[in-house]
């Protein structure tokens, strides 16, 4: 199979594996799963002034899911929250040349980004409301 070098690279050496303290207010955590195959993906962002300054992930799943989340963390870093919100799974598919059977992995990564951002927002909005 002519998989792109990028995907092989992300699979063999996933970037940004790890986690942040999820109780840190600057951190947003997204936890998503793919019931088709039982994959679980956790993606976290660290935000300063609406900019994502760092990202970490941990994925239990197949190579495509790992590569998709690894790529997602690279992409969101340095982006504003709004920019990150607009990342589409199709961009991940294209970048990694995922086969049709693995497209749900890219959907998972997109969902994880969105879930992390919404977690960050809800946490900070409620904080501001209280404060």
């Amino acid at each position: 199979m002519a998989y792109s070098d990028k995907v092989i690279d992300h699979y063999n050496e996933p970037r940004n594996v790890g986690s942040f303290d999820k109780n840190d207010d600057a951190v947003g955590t997204g936890l998503v799963g793919a019931p088709e195959c039982g994959d679980v993906m956790k993606l976290q962002i660290k935000v300063e002034n609406d900019q994502i300054v760092d990202a970490k992930f941990k994925t239990f799943g197949c190579g495509s899911a790992i590569a998709s989340s690894s790529l997602a963390t690279e992409w969101v870093k340095g982006k504003s929250i709004d920019e990150a919100m607009s990342i589409q799974n199709t961009e991940i598919v294209e970048e990694l040349s995922l086969p049709p059977v693995k497209i749900h992995c890219s959907v998972l990564a997109e969902d994880a980004i969105k879930a992390a951002i919404s977690d960050y927002k809800s946490r900070n909005n409620s904080e501001t409301a209280e404060g």
């Binding site: 998989y3 092989i8 699979y11 197949c62 190579g63 590569a67």
Partner: peptide
């Protein structure tokens, strides 16, 4: 099966 993703 088939070879996918990075030799898996």
């Amino acid at each position: 099966g088939i070879e996918t993703l990075g030799g898996t």
